[in-house]
Design a protein around this nucleic acid. Sequence first.
DNA 1: GCGGACTGCTTACCT
DNA 2: ACAGGTAAGCAGTCCGCG
Length: 871
Amino acid sequence: MSFKSGEPASNRSVSPSATVEERSRERDFLVFKPAETVDLSEAFFVSASYDGGRRAAFVKLYEPESKKIYFWYDNTGHKPYCLSDLPVEELRKIEPLVKHQGFDHLEEVTKVDSLRDKVLNMTKIVATDPLAIGGRPAGSIRDIIPKAWEADIRYYECFVYDRGLFPGMPYRVEGGSLVPVKPKLSEGVSKRLSEALASEPEEFGEFIRSLTDLFECRIPEFRRVALDIEVASDVPTRVPDPEGAEYPVVCATLLGSDGVRRILLLRREGVDSGPGFPEGVKVEFCDREVDLITEIFKALLDYPVVLTFNGDEFDLRYLYHRAEKRFKFAREQIPIELGKQFALLKYGVHIDLYKFFFNRSLQIYAFSQRYRENTLDAVGEALIGKAKIEFEGSLNDLAYSELAEYCYRDAEIAMELTTFDNDLVMKLILILTRISRMPMDDVCRQGVSSWIRSLMYYEHRLRNYLIPRSEDLLELKGMTSTEALIKGKKYKGAIVVEPRAGVHFNVSVLDFASLYPSIIKMYNLSYETVLCPHSDCRDNKVPDLPYWICKRRRGLSSLIIGAMRDLRVDWYKRVARDKSLPEPLRNLYNVVQLTLKVILNASYGVMGAEAFALYCPPVAEAVTAIGRYAFTKTIEKARSLGIEVVYGDTDSIFLEAPTAEQVDELVNWSREELRMELEIDKSYRYAAFPKLKKNYLGVYPDGTVDIKGMTGKKRNTPAFLQAAFMEMVRTLGEVQSPDDFEKARARIFDVVKTCYVKLKRREYPLEDLAFNIMISKPVEGYRKTTPQHVKAALLLQKSGIEVKPGDVISFVKVTSDLGVKPVRLTSSREVDVSKYMEYVQSTFEQVLDALGIDFKDIMGVTKLESFFGAG
DNA sequence: GCGGACTGCTTACCT
DNA sequence: ACAGGTAAGCAGTCCGCG
């Protein structure tokens, strides 16, 4: 497409000559007014919030036919409240309460106190608006009464829990009422499902059924738009400040899932047209920035889902302030709702993919650590193989088409991050929404502890359980009684077995299928069951801990985590692999099992995390104690069966050449004695262990190699060394029998020697020599020491390059005073060759150590330096 | 004044 | 703001060394 085919913004709605007031009035079409509730046959609950004007909770419903958002306002008269243990008469005497502006009325209620296992009479303090309960700096109801329960729950969440609504699920609107659409399971599926879970005890059955309703339900396609803006700025290395919003928005891309591909460009003096615009894109030139912004705002009022990468912090925030400060938009004319740390939309749902992909649990368990840096570039490259477009110098100097291309690519990456693998990300979000019972916007912005908190709160309300106050939980259950091995940690964790250093052939690795969730289920662990109030439970001891566990009642977290574990292991994991099922169904099942994995893997961790609302250290401590117990018993049993245990970590044990009978016997023993499922996870042709824990190399029968923990594989290791290391690994993959190691040794010698020679001759490009270390704090935050990567970062800053937490600092070791220098500021002759040689040696020694080869045997001398003569 | 032994900090990894 | 356990490399400190 040529430059000329660009056209001015269509539908320009504000005439250039109008006065400020006239323009403002003309802009009123941007004022968002939710349509009155209409009847709908099926629409998906995507979000909820509170409308201060109407004093009611509302729900955003996505209707997949029209692909629009509809608003449903609560018409059941639900009101905000909190709970008190004081009787109504007592509360009436508290004047500041009853005279409180937002006070509505008092109600007597009963609640189940699961901590003390009894029913309580309590008083519900009902208010007219959520801020009256809490949230005002002073004088909130929760601060007036001596002790308030359930006063920290956001109002719309409270509403969702009380009304038993399920975010993410379909509803119909009928005569103004919100009615769930019962999803229909196909007969085949429902039959197989009940067979698969037939052995479940009934106490789990009911909860499992409620979960399958959520998971088996279809997921709609979301009409969405990816938005990216570019802002001019005089300082090329600095991101413009979104609060000040001083610079003009010069370009924006609106890339819709519906085929819309628009690039909006601000016409400026002296800008070249450039080589050409991306194919099939509508390029629109705006003479005035305000028109460009108006076009973006129209899209924000049109699309039910808006995707950005860092829109919370930048794009939407910038647009908001730019519109308000520079163009005097009234708040109502801006379709964005700004919070301290997020930017939401008045009409649809804003998904900030930066926040989503930044989530550690998702990063590790859903995307298997495929990306590490949280930049659009890194995530895009890793997941969809698409990188940002690079350019030299300032964005201001780009020609129109270059700027457009750059901006367009970013939007493209954002969109494709939600479309790859059959819309995996959108589906993940929706399934998470259903599990956590949280609005979609919140799910994308919050961590796993919030998801689990929300799920737990919901189940409390469903059962009329009083949600315990954090301080009561801590006081009643106490802290921990074990000592961690690591300074600063709260309690003892897992066991790592000292490896039998050397090479072992035919190694089988057994592990417990989700050990911690299984323990939580089997041992009935939950905050209310550990150290329960019943004297007859006191003999039900946790091994090696002064704790007992309730025998009378099923703990709520045990029920929830146990059910999810079984559902994943016995149903979703299996059907996700079942080729006889239609592809779309299998795809859904895979998303479900992935999501369950994310939640389950974190379920133990949150119990020991202070930030978790139901934080209960003894529970976390009991989990690891039982884990250690099962683990050591299993190792003892294996050894008693005559099996050599060469290594083990937490829940996995490495057995040297066990017979099939031995493995069977161990697995059966575990099932019967421990009531835990032990299974073969993997088998190695051989495995090599250095003396170090959490370090090994395992070769599968087909020659592929597993490497764990070794320096050569770490991402901060210089590329040249990683490559040399991988070269050695390939050689080791070819080793079939002990005799083959001789050949491998010669090859390894070559690899190391080549490395050395190239270092010496300074033949490696500097980038290959760079250590890449992430800086986790602002540079000024390093008070106690100044690590090398921070030294390099300081040098970068001095040269005018901005360094932010999360940036990866690439630096080279040099001979000059500081010892390090950022790659981009270094020349090849400065490199400290002998330092690199030491590094080569230590990296290779890790593996050679395991193979029983001395480094000096390979090189003939102790140190590389002496091998080649003094450096 | 310098180097070894030590501790602590920081990062990246394993389960 | 899910947990604890392990390793590497370096920064910084203390102490001995007549």
